[in-house]
Design a binder for these strands. Structure first.
Length: 111
DNA sequence: TGGGTGACCATAG
DNA sequence: ACTATGGCCACCC
């Protein structure tokens, strides 16, 4: 794959690569970047994209539990799950239903 | 320059 | 089962 040179930019790239109607996790992206422990930085990268470009579907990135932990960082918390539902993803109580089904792992799918 | 923090994850007690 | 702590990288004060 292409090497941006930083987790920050790379995380944003991977986020853009997430297919429509699919979701990914911070840990999966972090692992794809090479460090499974740096999942926190992925979230930080998403936060940066927020004020950068809207081309990065940060709403498609959730935690391993399928919980929309980062919804609070959006303009409005409802925005995140609203976008997910709009794409056909079932969300219940800020949690993604059938998370394993819509889960998109860059390590397996993209690789 | 140094330290704290952050949308996480995994391991240990 | 739950709580505590370590780890990782980048950013802000």
């Amino acid at each position: 794959m292409k090497k941006e040179g930083s987790f920050f930019e790379d995380a944003q790239e991977v986020a853009k690569l997430i297919p429509h109607g699919r979701v990914s996790s911070y840990g999966a992206i972090a692992k794809y970047l090479g460090s499974a422990k740096s999942a926190r930085m992925v979230g930080w990268a998403m936060n940066a994209t927020k004020g950068k470009e809207m081309g990065v579907p940060a709403h498609r990135v959730v935690n391993k539990q399928g919980l929309l932990t980062g919804k609070k960082h959006f303009g409005t918390p409802s925005e995140m799950e609203r976008l997910l539902v709009k794409e056909g993803i079932e969300v219940f109580e800020h949690k993604i239903v059938d998370f394993t089904k819509v889960f998109w792992d860059p390590n397996s799918e993209l690789m």
